[in-house]
């Protein structure tokens, strides 16, 4: 059975239309997304800023309410739970954030911060057990337990991200939503954190929803990848195969923008003109058509549906009928 099944999930935020605006408009941040995550699996989620990755990640674990759709966690629809029931399920899904500087409470020591997570879910019967558990968690994420009484500002960015991971791990979750956990870090530190996440997955059988905008990072950690554009999935596939032979023109442009060190690499850059359009008034037809180098007539009018190509690939593009 899948750990997580997301069915036609939508998250729309109301926005006020000017001061004297009549009626409401909506940001279509997530607009009909369907996917599954198996236990112990990593699903990568890529796309440019503003395409709805954070909103999707937060909606999946009900940190933002969904407008429509079902979120089945271990077969139970958590979008319909009462607040009390939801709170009791929270232990099963955790989140780690992009900014290791602002996601930790600066007034709590590492011990207090991780201990707090243990206390909320009553996972440590007494102080000694709590301390023992925190020490073990710190060791697991590669930090020195003797630093447990220090405050977040005494650590580097990479170390703070490790603290965030230890805090998420404390409650023994089955799923961690990782929202750009390495985007703010040095390249050398990125690699350390990604290796750590993989080790922890092997040791604890964790599943990850791993959000990032750099496909080289996502390819490395993910089993499968979802490519998102303006609130929708445009391509999904096994990660190596998707990066080797991308189908959707958007996936191809994302891949061609990945930084490459080798000055002789003979790759053609497909520069994406312009920015992601407004999700309040998404373009008609295929939302990518205004920036697509291959757009044809019907792309402006007909919305392409996700279709299966071969055994493990789906793509929403008129080029693949």
């Amino acid at each position: 059975m899948n750990l997580l099944e997301i069915q036609n999930l939508k998250v729309h935020f109301p926005v006020r239309k000017g001061l004297l605006g009549r009626g409401k408009e909506f940001v279509h941040a997530v607009d009909g997304v369907t996917f599954n995550i198996a236990p112990g699996e990593t699903l990568g989620l890529v796309g440019e800023s503003g395409c709805g990755k954070t909103t999707l990640g937060r909606a999946v674990i009900q940190l933002v309410p969904s407008t429509h759709g079902r979120i089945l966690f271990n077969g139970e629809d958590i979008s319909r739970l009462s607040a009390t029931d939801l709170r009791s399920r929270r232990q099963r899904f955790q989140m780690i954030f992009q900014d290791p500087y602002s996601s930790l409470n600066p007034r709590l020591t590492v011990l207090e911060c991780i201990g707090e997570a243990l206390d909320i879910h009553r996972l440590a019967p007494d102080r000694a057990a709590r301390r023992e558990r925190v020490d073990k968690l710190l060791k697991d994420v590669g930090l020195d337990p003797s630093h447990a009484d220090r405050y977040p500002h005494e650590f580097s960015g990479g170390q703070r991200q490790r603290i965030g991971i230890a805090r998420a791990l404390a409650v023994q979750p089955q799923l961690i939503v990782c929202d750009e956990p390495v985007s703010a870090l040095d390249v050398s530190v990125q690699a350390q954190i990604i290796n750590l996440l993989k080790d922890l997955q092997d040791a604890h059988g964790l599943a990850y929803l791993f959000v990032a905008h750099d496909l080289a990072v996502v390819e490395h950690i993910s089993h499968r990848i979802l490519v998102m554009y303006l609130g929708r999935i445009v391509e999904e596939g096994e990660s190596k195969s998707l990066c080797r032979s991308p189908l959707h023109p958007y996936t191809r442009s994302l891949l061609s923008a990945v930084p490459v060190v080798d000055p002789d690499s003979k790759r053609s850059r497909i520069f994406l003109a312009g920015d992601v359009p407004s999700p309040i008034h998404p373009p008609s037809g295929c939302p990518f058509h205004p920036r697509c180098p291959m757009a044809e007539g019907r792309c402006k009018t007909e919305v392409p549906q996700l279709k299966s190509i071969g055994s493990d690939r789906t793509v929403a593009c008129h080029l693949f009928p």
């Binding site: 390249v187 050398s188 990125q190 690699a191 350390q192 990604i194 290796n195 993989k198 750099d214 496909l215 080289a216 990072v217 390819e219 490395h220 190596k240 990066c243 080797r244 891949l255 990945v258 930084p259 490459v260 060190v261 080798d262 000055p263 002789d264």
Partner: peptide, 28 residues
Amino acid sequence: LKNPLHPYTQALIHSVPKLGRDVTRLTT
């Protein structure tokens, strides 16, 4: 970039994740 001489430069270059590289662990 082609022929880094300092071990630090070599390490920095190797820590950039590369597409299509089938490795289980990234170099850190």
